[in-house]
């Protein structure tokens, strides 16, 4: 719609409009140059690098696709980090969205203290990851952490060893990540909720709809563009989990919390395998790109842009 309008207008642009367009490009240029130099070029260079072997010092060697083949045939750690990351995404993305929506719905009411709770739920977003990770490390401490103390009081005789167990370390990281991720999604959902015209609810009420029904028939459909945005952003950020794993567990125990991005970092800067690290980075990029593309293609089935 808006694209077609723009085409028509192109033919007779006034001097004023042209000036505005020039100004727009003027404002965009610094950012575009930054994107070109600091994002596009390195990403493109990494693509070339992914077909080579390079340890930073010896000359670069062209090795074709062997880095990509190595991932699946000759690097058991990669298979492990791939599984970890997929499991992490599969659990945290739905949780981060559903819980954020629930919190947003609760805090969208005109009740006493909502401002306080909104701030409280948003706090993790603006807190430093390192500080957050350190506090959670303590919360998860198997013997003296508050979490296991509560579980013990509730009668759990041998609560999980959390970060010191191969079984529970990844779930522990998921919990922190979900807690950390709710705030941002909540704010976006709140904005979305406030954009839904109040008369829709009033009309539904007059027609005798229950609030449960208005939620399913009005809130969810009207919120779908917001949900779509949140879904895409949350998926991408979940795939990139790195900082929590580094600080809380160093990828351990026994690679239980090792992730794709941490594996990239270690290959590049600890094992001097720049080419291989670049190949994994591109693999991750392709996976994220494919999933995002699928989400965009699929949105016509459930995302509603008509107001």
């Amino acid at each position: 719609m808006s694209l077609a309008k723009g085409k028509k207008a192109k033919k007779r642009r006034s001097a004023n409009e042209r000036r505005e367009i020039m100004a727009a490009y003027g404002f965009l240029t610094p950012n575009l140059i930054g994107f070109l130099i600091f994002t596009f070029l390195p990403v493109f260079a990494a693509l070339l690098l992914s077909f080579t072997e390079w340890d930073l010092l010896r000359p670069i060697q062209w090795v074709g696709l062997s880095n990509y083949i190595r991932m699946f045939t000759n690097d058991p750690t990669f298979i492990k980090v791939l599984k970890n990351t997929l499991l992490f995404v599969a659990v945290t993305v739905p949780a981060r969205i559903v819980l954020a929506l629930a919190v947003a719905l609760a805090l969208n009411q005109k009740l006493f203290g909502t401002t306080f709770f909104r701030t409280a739920f948003f706090m993790p977003v603006v807190s430093s990851s390192v500080a957050v990770a350190l506090v959670w490390q303590w919360i998860f401490h198997a013997d003296f952490g508050p979490l296991n103390n509560i579980l013990w009081i509730l009668g759990v005789a041998s609560p999980p060893r959390w970060l010191t167990s191969t079984q529970w370390a990844l779930p522990a990281l998921m919990i922190v990540s979900i807690w950390q991720g709710i705030g941002m999604n909540m704010v976006i959902f709140l904005a979305g909720l406030q954009g839904i015209p109040a008369q829709l609810y009033e009309a539904a009420k007059i027609d005798g709809a229950t609030s449960w029904k208005s939620f399913w028939k009005i809130t969810l459909p009207m919120l779908s563009p917001t949900t779509f945005l949140v879904l895409v952003m949350t998926t991408i950020s979940s795939f990139q989990i790195f900082d929590l794993a580094v600080i809380m567990t160093e990828g351990g125990p026994a690679n239980a919390t090792n992730t794709i991005v941490y594996h990239i970092y270690r290959n590049a800067f600890q094992f001097f395998r720049m080419g291989y690290a670049a190949a994994i980075a591109w693999f991750l990029f392709i996976v994220i790109f494919a999933i995002t593309l699928f989400q965009f293609r699929n949105q016509k089935n459930w995302v509603n842009y008509d107001i």
Binding site: R161, S165, T166, G252, P253, A254, N255, R266, Q270, F271
Partner: peptide, 20 residues
């Protein structure tokens, strides 16, 4: 050795040291 240690030996010893 750094690579062998962090991809093979350390993960194995992790299991030993956490008693699994």
């Amino acid at each position: 050795y750094v690579e062998l240690n962090s991809t093979v030996i350390t993960p194995a010893l992790d299991l030993l040291f956490i008693g699994e």
